[in-house]
């Protein structure tokens, strides 16, 4: 800090605390609501402190799901979300590493064309091509399957771009040294490039895991069978029901379960994730 102005420091902390309160307040209320009986949330104003029904509420939704909101239990939906998020994250990293390697380390005809085809995906988010993409997946018989949930979301220009940027910073001499050591392209990729990219891989993993977990529209389209529902899309049904029945305690418990895994991933891998996020866009 350039100068010492005590009131400015106080003001800063005050603003930051307001920001933190803004961020945490909805989460806190959701948590509180998830620990009360359904009846406590119907009459008047909801309480601000946790109740004693936490274990009971969470056990109910995890095993039995929510009454009146379809049969899938939150446990099943969590598992589906996990499978989908992991497939997307791992799949994206795998194909992006390969294609970034090809684009950076080889000279071949149509290289730039391939590059631009991959980059065109940036301009075609799933939201703008909803119907035709749905039709393709339906024609391929991939509705109500984990493949249908994850594969169409795997192509990622962002991850390819980040790996490309990273590969470009790897000193040429390393590739030359590997060549002198007799390593062919695949050997170089496996022994040198991938191990060197570990931090980037971890950072992209966090970003893509959250991207996959938080998908909403896509699972909404491709799943009609409730055993394939993901938690983030499942919550919408609960809210619709919660408004007509006094079931807010279950809806909020589900919301907490839906946001807990990605939040933990972000918090645990915070440093890697922040580095990766800010660098992706540079």
């Amino acid at each position: 800090m350039v100068e010492n102005r005590p009131w400015l420091t106080v003001l800063q902390h005050f603003v930051l605390l307001c920001g933190v309160a803004l961020v945490l307040f909805p989460l806190w209320i959701a948590f509180v609501a998830s620990t009360h009986e359904g009846r406590a949330l119907v009459a008047g104003v909801i309480p601000l402190l946790p109740g004693d029904q936490m274990v009971e509420n969470y056990r109910t939704i995890l095993t039995a799901g929510m009454q009146g909101a379809g049969g899938a239990s939150v446990g099943t939906m969590l598992l589906n979300s996990l499978i989908m998020a992991l497939s997307i994250a791992v799949g994206k990293i795998a194909i992006s590493l390969l294609s970034a390697f090809a684009v950076v380390y080889f000279r071949f005809p149509f290289r730039m064309l391939c590059f631009w085809i991959i980059f065109s995906t940036l301009m075609l988010p799933v939201e703008v091509r909803i119907l035709p993409t749905f039709e393709v997946v339906a024609n391929l018989g991939m509705l109500n399957s984990y493949a249908g949930l994850s594969i169409p979301l795997i192509a990622s220009a962002t991850a390819t771009f980040l790996f490309r940027q990273f590969f470009l910073t790897v000193p040429d001499e390393l590739a030359e040294a590997a060549r002198m050591d007799g390593a062919g392209p695949f050997r170089f990729f496996k022994d040198i490039l991938v191990p060197l990219s570990r931090t980037n891989i971890a950072a992209i993993f966090v970003i893509m895991f959250i991207y996959g977990w938080n998908q909403y529209l896509w699972p909404l389209l491709v799943t009609t069978d409730e055993s394939f529902y993901t938690i983030v899309m499942g919550i919408q049904r609960m809210v619709t029901v919660a408004d007509s029945y006094p079931r807010w305690h279950h809806a909020m418990a589900t919301a907490v379960m839906a946001l807990l895994p990605p939040t933990l991933v972000v918090l645990i891998m915070q440093r890697l994730f922040v580095k990766g996020l800010v660098e992706t866009e540079k």
């Binding site: 795998a94 194909i95 992006s96 390969l98 294609s99 390697f101 090809a102 684009v103 380390y105 080889f106 071949f108 290289r111 391939c114 085809i117 991959i118 065109s120 995906t121 075609l124 091509r129 035709p132 993409t133 039709e135 393709v136 997946v137 594969i151 169409p152 795997i154 192509a155 390819t160 392209p185 695949f186």
Partner: peptide
């Protein structure tokens, strides 16, 4: 070899991005 490396991504891009678009 580079085309084989690019194939997975190109295939997915084509089937689920370019074709629907």
């Amino acid at each position: 070899f580079p085309l084989v490396l690019l194939l997975p991504q190109l295939a997915i891009t084509f089937v689920f991005f370019l074709w629907p678009a």
